[in-house]
Design a protein around this nucleic acid. Structure first.
Lengths: 206, 206
DNA sequence: TAACATTGTTAACACCGATAACATAACATC
DNA sequence: GATGTTATGTTATCGGTGTTAACAATGTTA
């Protein structure tokens, strides 16, 4: 063997990239440490010098995914708070559509149990805070009902997350036929679902 | 070997139950055909006489999951259409909370690719139709805005699905502290998120 | 240069899903 | 009742996986 290549020097980054490529092309289950090692040209146990185990490698992928999502949400124009909410939702769904396998890994749940990878939890929280602060701003500016912020964020996040998953899993056949579905769904939440525009602000806990 | 036990007679049902037990206690990844076979007291390849492969067995579990979900949604009182919508949403989230691993399997996406198991797709559709028909009834009775039904169902389903996943994955810490979170979130969608109760029914596609 | 830490290696363990070839039981038909 | 067919088991085996142990080579530093 060429003695220059014994210490690879770039192994963790290359393994990370390789795993990401496989994830995008196939799914998380298709990620095999042995296959990655072979592709890079290194023995399989070498990976264990840089990743505690397979799950930790997957967690690293999910972390970068949350960073990308956070960045994309931050890039949304925040001029008009009404449009900001819609556009943040659209950016969120677009991210899931652009990176379906990565998104599933980030929110898989069964994989990557919460609490096992603190940096992952923190990365998820950072992305979440972008959504939260936008909602808080909408409330401050009087555009949104002055309901408890956790309730607002839970509702908004549930909608965009659920919509993202249903779309990328093909449960909403209208997603392809109707490219503005996400826009309509988000607008429906923003405008409310009630027919009679009564002011039932006290009625949230009947 | 006791000749009476050669033909087991109850193998598929027992394998199904065993897999379901493992799924509930651990996760879908913990389901191993070999382990199931050993527990039942049969050789591993015997399972292949009843299930094409591991994925098909998982699909069977998901099918029964969708049937349970459908039944629980059907059991919801439908007297008051306004309450019916809320209660169907609550029943949906409760199911996910009661059967988190099963719910993740049903909506995992990465596993059980859509189209690969027609009976599974049909079972999912049946559960979906309960939600759809309740929404349609709400529109007929004038309680809900006369928006396109696919838009209404996509929105409602996205919300309950997203809420369910975020809760069972522990992303909404308020779920334990605030048992009425689901109720509040669903009510928020029903009442609308807008502060000014204008009638923007034409404004869904700005 | 010698000691040490880092980062590779090969060998091996304990699993896994899946298939092939074969054996037994149940059953249908003459 | 004997016989051929089908259903349902068996054992043996293949190729694959994550992971660990024991060892070797390189890089770093006193």
């Amino acid at each position: 063997m060429s003695r220059a290549a014994y210490h690879h020097g770039d192994l963790p980054q290359q393994a990370h990239q390789q795993a990401l490529d496989i994830l995008r092309a196939e799914s998380d289950t298709a990620i095999s440490l042995r296959a990655i090692a072979k592709q890079i040209g290194v023995s399989a146990p070498a990976l264990y010098r840089h990743f505690a185990d397979r799950e930790t490698l997957l967690a690293e992928l999910a972390i970068t995914g949350f960073q990308w999502l956070r960045d994309r949400l931050r890039q949304v124009e925040q001029d008009d708070p009404r449009k900001a909410l819609l556009h943040i939702g659209l950016a969120y769904v677009s991210f899931a559509q652009d990176e379906p396998h990565l998104y599933r890994l980030m929110f898989g749940g069964r994989i990557l149990p919460k609490g096992a990878h603190p940096r992952l939890d923190e990365a998820g929280l950072e992305a979440f805070r972008v959504l939260e602060s936008t909602l808080a701003r909408g409330q401050r500016e009087g555009y949104l009902k002055p309901l408890p912020l956790p309730l607002m964020t839970a509702t908004a996040w549930s909608l965009v997350h659920g919509l993202s998953e249903l779309i990328i899993d093909g449960h909403l056949p209208g997603a392809d036929a109707e490219p503005r579905l996400a826009e309509s769904v988000l607008t429906l939440l923003l405008h409310g679902s009630r027919n009679e525009p009564e002011s039932h602000t006290e009625d949230t806990t009947p």
